[in-house]
Design a protein around this nucleic acid. Structure first.
Lengths: 218, 218
DNA sequence: GGAGTAAGTGTGACGTTGACACGAACTCCC
DNA sequence: GGGAGTTCGTGTCAACGTCACACTTACTCC
């Protein structure tokens, strides 16, 4: 068969300690043995691209049910020293408490990335850029949160992604005005201070928001 | 070599008669003989993705020096009846006067597309959606215009892409306030009416605009 | 009951958006 | 040479969104 190999790599983000983290694997074999890399693998012959990303995340990180979207296809003929492999990169988002199986996978803060194998650094950089753009006009940010969350948690998520601090009152005012959160009437008791009210994101209320040109720009 | 074939397809837009048009080729051979399709072809073994798109546009449409960006990679295992081919779709923009070589290529208005081969209709739809989004926060719109243009031409370009009419005074006020156009001090004399002043887009003035959060939303 | 901590809340200044109508400049024709 | 026809080019005002900014509330722990 003529053609070249096609792989799928995923930049998997989560929030940890109010910082954005990505999942990295430690490579055991050459090339780049001992380096860190994104979870990825070759596309199977009759497999959808996104299905491949899902399969690989399950195999390599024991994860199920993650939010996934295609990012970009990297095709530099020299990106893999073993021969040509083009890779379809994806972005994935998971909530903070996502467990990891033991093994060679670890969450790494984005501001302290080690050297990455192949062109994976470029892929991560591009993924962050895209995530920053997208979080402002789409509700993907909630994929980084648990189902029930406080407003402070939402703000921390936005701050972690955007890399800047936001004004508390303005953030809450804007977010609530979009009418996409449903207050649960309950509160989370945590520590020695006033409990925070819990909310849930209502996917179904999103459509009208986008149609009106409203958006998560804070 | 294990792997599947990889092709590159391009949705090439231009403006014609104040409408958005795409370049279509007529297929001569099966599958889909007689149908229209996007210009595309197989990736060469040591070729960059974007270089392949450039080569194909040159070969199939005689075009050089077009604006190109990657759109999305379509990987449905059944998208080509001959066997698996994943395709890296691109968007290209050219100014209105772009000549076409004779042959099987033709400009087709977007609102009157014929049936397209493979999944090319889906690709065109997605390309339009992306172009509409992108024109509002990046100056790609100017790639659809000649180097020197009038404000009315810019407005027509935005109206054609966005598919809605815009207010003339508000459009001009906003566009000029971004300070990315350089007035040429000359005018284009055309027909029996007041001549229109000519402008040029200044790439170098764009950075500051984006940094300030300004944008081409009209 | 006092200290400590995060949650929750409103106002006013400023800038942006959006609706809206008419004179200016040119050509062509008579 | 003047009138008809056509597109170019321009300003104001009201409504709305954004941004800066500080204190009280609710709870726990000692």
């Amino acid at each position: 068969m003529t053609g070249c190999r096609v792989s799928v790599d995923t930049v998997l983000f989560r929030l940890g300690l109010a910082r954005l983290q990505v999942l990295l694997l430690r490579r055991l074999r050459p090339p780049f043995a001992g380096w860190s890399s994104l979870p990825g693998g070759l596309l199977h012959p009759r497999e959808e691209l996104q299905a491949a990303a899902v399969r690989i995340l399950r195999q390599r990180a024991g994860l199920d049910d993650v939010y996934l979207e295609q990012l970009f296809t990297f095709g530099d003929p020299a990106r893999d020293p073993r021969g040509r492999v083009i890779t379809v990169a994806h972005i994935a988002l998971v909530p903070p408490a996502t467990p990891l199986p033991a093994g060679d996978a670890s969450w790494t803060p984005l501001h302290a990335l080690p050297r990455l194998a192949f062109d994976h650094r470029r892929i991560v950089d591009y993924a962050l850029q895209r995530l920053r753009g997208k979080i402002e006009y789409s509700p993907v940010g909630f994929r980084l949160l648990p189902e029930e969350f406080t407003l402070t948690e939402v703000q921390e998520a936005y701050e972690a992604v955007l890399g800047r601090v936001l004004d508390k009152r303005n953030f809450r005012k804007k977010l609530l005005s979009l009418k996409v959160l449903r207050p649960l009437g309950r509160a989370r008791k945590v520590g020695a201070h006033r409990p925070a009210r819990l909310y849930r994101f209502e996917e179904s209320r999103w459509e009208g928001v986008r149609d009106k040109g409203n958006v998560f720009v804070f």
